[in-house]
Design a protein around this nucleic acid. Structure first.
Lengths: 159, 159
DNA sequence: AGTCTCGTTCAGTCAACACTGAACGAACTG
DNA sequence: CAGTTCGTTCAGTGTTGACTGAACGAGACT
């Protein structure tokens, strides 16, 4: 029972975090559920456990799936869709963020090109912004490709 | 005139980006304005130029100021508050994001502690999430402290 | 074919929140 | 001490968008 409330608490926190990050609350709760339980869930199970509609479960699971954070698994002889955590879900999250930043950087570069060539100072300032986004995106990409580097390595655990 | 529309276009894009990032649209537009114009602005000037209320200008400028992206400058003999880009505004943005991630990581660690000790697997999965946030935060901190490292170095310009 | 059980889609609703207008407080000027 | 001009605060409003309920479509089993 204590375990149950700890799980619910964690799931709810994940929802709030997700929402503060610009995502939907439900997608965070689904992710939290899959992390806590550590087993595949059907859309129906999610809906019942999280007290949400099947529509929301479907939509948000699809959303999480497109970014590779969760994956769809199918059991033989079972028509239902099971969702579970993808491989390296957090690296996928980073990669997704990196892609978004790269898109923003490209967009800012576009905007820079629309300024007249003689506005040197303006173009330089705008270019600095684009550079920030692009460098950030590239670093995230590097990191998601080589997660072993970097500070605070995770304590190794034998599965 | 072409320069003007390019500026407005850029400012508007910054607003959309800011909104997509979970910030307010106006804060992005203010930032875009300061980047494009490259000079200090008063709240009244912002309100007029961006066609927003003084209240919004005040609130959003305050918001940007707390993260150090823009700074308040005072001209002698002028009661008005002038806002301009802070020093290394993008590094400050990174640092702010890093702080938020560190807070989330700490929060997840808290949640992990609330699980019963015998739920080894659950605790491990939750811990991996906390680790992700904390490592991300630390890396962002490193980046904001050492901006010279990393791919695609910005072209140096003599101020 | 008929029925049942899935997942998805779409219009409608509801709540969160950005934004505004007006009132207030503060600091300077005459 | 009025009068003025700032910036801030707060209640009210408008809008976006997440979420729901119901209808629909697709397979599967009898």
């Amino acid at each position: 029972m204590d375990s149950k409330s700890a799980a619910e608490n964690f799931i709810e926190r994940m929802g709030v975090i997700s929402q503060a990050d610009g995502q939907t609350r439900i997608s965070g709760r689904i992710l939290g559920l899959l992390i806590v339980e550590g087993r595949p869930f059907t859309l129906g199970e999610m809906a019942e456990r999280l007290q949400i509609s099947k529509a929301s479960a479907s939509t948000n699971a699809r959303l999480l799936r497109t970014s590779g954070v969760i994956r769809l698994v199918s059991h033989a002889g079972d028509r239902q869709d099971y969702y579970e955590l993808g491989t390296d879900p957090y690296r996928r999250m980073m990669a997704t963020v990196g892609e978004r930043l790269a898109n923003i950087g490209a967009e800012v570069l576009e905007a820079e090109a629309s300024f007249p060539p003689n506005d040197m100072d303006t173009r330089r300032r705008v270019h600095q912004l684009a550079d920030f986004y692009l460098r950030m995106a590239e670093r995230l990409k590097d990191w998601s490709d080589h997660p072993e580097n970097g500070p605070a390595p995770a304590p190794r655990h034998n599965s």
